[in-house]
């Protein structure tokens, strides 16, 4: 097992899959300003994914670059958390997911700034600034939806109810995470859960939203067991690169 490579795939895949989901809003967001905001966030995530997958390919040493990893792997080879591949849903689903992921990703990036790998530490340092903004933007929207009309409250609550069971997977640590953390390369995600929970619960409480009683957390993405949704997403994301191998634009 090449722990740093597997670890980087998880980081990169989280970002490229969510980035793609967000890009689906382009031209469809509720207002023009938010359309641009979501596209900006999507571009931040795709930019990070490009760096992380590029580094993963270099560490793997099999001649695959970031594009090959992004566009030429099948669903079972992807390592993103299930939360990030779920359909974009309505605006509330998108925003609640964005809050859940951004708070997690910010904590993760802050820890990765101290990575023993200079390149990963550098990518993390850039990402911290981006995630601070993503947290601010999504938290602000969650407060507005929760404190808005009955309709927006209902939708935000439904989004929290539907997505909560996918949050546990973010903090599951297996041998890959533990090996990456032990060598100083990565961070054990289970160490981020308390801080995440504190921030997210605080935002939800201020928004008047409640956390559902969930007895089972969904899992599987980190080992390639995905929902049916990922295949459809990849079909769209990869069609150009697979139809025109080696094309550049």
């Amino acid at each position: 097992m090449n722990a740093p490579f597997e670890y980087l795939l998880r980081l990169g895949d989280d970002r490229i899959i969510l980035g793609h989901r967000l890009s689906e809003w382009c031209g469809h967001a509720p207002i023009l300003e938010e359309d641009i905001a979501l596209a900006n966030i999507a571009l931040d995530l795709i930019g990070q994914a490009s760096l992380l997958l590029g580094l993963a390919g270099k560490i793997e040493g099999q001649g695959r670059d970031g594009d090959a990893l992004a566009y030429l792997r099948d669903a079972v080879e992807f390592r993103n958390a299930l939360l990030l591949e779920l359909p974009k849903g309505d605006f509330a689903v998108t925003i609640v997911r964005q809050l859940f992921f951004s708070v997690f990703a910010l904590l993760q990036a802050e820890a990765l700034e101290r990575s023993s790998d200079q390149e990963l530490a550098g990518i993390a340092a850039k990402a911290v600034k981006e995630f601070r903004y993503h947290v601010r933007h999504s938290a602000d929207w969650v407060l507005k939806l929760g404190g808005g009309t009955t309709e927006s409250q209902n939708r935000a609550q439904r989004a929290v109810d539907d997505l909560w069971r996918y949050t546990g997977e973010l903090f599951l640590a297996d041998d890959v995470d533990r090996a990456a953390a032990a060598s100083g390369f990565g961070v054990d995600p289970s160490t981020l859960e308390n801080a995440w929970s504190e921030t997210v619960r605080d935002v939800l409480a201020r928004a008047g939203l409640t956390i559902p009683d969930v007895s089972y957390m969904q899992r599987g993405g980190r080992t390639g067991r995905h929902t049916e949704h990922l295949g459809h997403l990849l079909g769209e994301m990869q069609i150009l690169a697979r139809s025109h191998p080696g094309a550049s634009w």
């Binding site: 023009l32 300003e33 641009i36 905001a37 900006n40 903004y133 601010r136 933007h137 602000d140 507005k144």
Partner: peptide, 20 residues
């Protein structure tokens, strides 16, 4: 100019539209 419901949103929208 941007549309926004409050000052914080206006600031964020301004950042996204004019200063990215």
């Amino acid at each position: 100019s941007v549309h926004a419901v409050d000052a914080e949103s206006a600031l964020q929208n301004a950042r996204d539209v004019y200063a990215r």
